[in-house]
């Protein structure tokens, strides 16, 4: 039995008087994809940011691959990486794509950067000539591919995804999701996928955690999600909303 990829115990995050995450515990097994769903403000993104060390942990602890609770910058970055929600904001506007992809390698003092950047670009299905372009010369989907390439260039064991497709067109969403699925299958990293679209999350993940107001409400297996059988009334509401949305989409088509 190997240790969990991410083990979260009784995690709380407070900003001043507001408690955003209240005593959440769950774990992600190596190679698994776990979904986190909930309405906006339910604390799902905050959990990711706390794992990444971008938000302070007020209570409880986060253990990543058996590391001590407060790993140093470089160790953490080499193990966990994150893809942000908005590909228009997550790439530095004045760095070329090549430079953006090189940055993690430079920070970690890794050599052979040129080859690694080429490999990273082709892994996400972008032409190698893109490395001389600036982010504003790319479409949203292309930018998100760059962000995924950047997150994976350090070969992390855990990938955190913060609604990676919600800022993209519907047609592009599927492409990016399939790319993630394919990379996940090839490389075997663990994924923690935050989303508000239950359909997308069910497509990607083995298990789904439902959050409401910073509290973990329910855990659902993929089968349960597809069958639509949830115990918790809040989860049922989410499921119903997702089904209605799907119905509307079908109707429009």
């Amino acid at each position: 039995m190997t240790a969990a990829a991410v083990d979260i115990e009784n995690l709380s995050v407070r900003f001043g008087a507001a408690t955003v995450v209240r005593g959440v515990s769950f774990s992600v097994r190596p190679g698994e994809c776990v979904g986190l769903v909930g309405e906006s403000g339910s604390g799902k993104s905050t959990i990711l940011r706390a794992i990444m060390g971008l938000e302070p942990v007020s209570d409880g602890q986060i253990v990543i691959h058996g590391m001590p609770p407060r790993p140093d910058r470089l160790t953490r970055a080499g193990t966990v990486q994150m893809v942000f929600q908005d590909p228009y904001a997550s790439l530095h506007p004045r760095q070329t794509i090549g430079r953006i992809l090189e940055e993690p390698l430079r920070i970690h003092g890794i050599g052979g950067r040129e080859d690694k950047v080429r490999a990273a670009l082709s892994a996400v299905g972008l032409p190698i000539s893109f490395r001389f372009r600036f982010p504003h010369q790319l479409s949203g989907g292309q930018r998100q591919r760059v962000a995924i390439a950047r997150a994976l260039i350090l070969e992390p064991r855990v990938l955190l995804l913060d609604e990676p497709t919600s800022a993209l067109d519907v047609s592009v969403q599927a492409e990016v999701l399939n790319l993630l699925k394919q990379l996940h299958a090839e490389r075997g990293f663990s994924m923690l996928f935050v989303g508000h679209d239950l359909g997308v999350v069910a497509h990607m993940c083995n298990r789904v955690m439902v959050l409401e107001n910073g509290i973990l409400k329910e855990e659902l297996s993929q089968q349960a999600l597809h069958a639509g059988c949830a115990e918790d009334p809040y989860t049922r509401k989410l499921l119903q909303a997702a089904r209605m949305e799907a119905a509307v989409v079908l109707h429009v088509r």
Binding site: R49, G53, A77, Q81, M82, F84, S90
Partner: peptide, 9 residues
């Protein structure tokens, strides 16, 4: 992009 840089270490 600053958050991303921070998370790269």
């Amino acid at each position: 992009f600053i958050q991303a840089a921070r998370s790269q270490g």
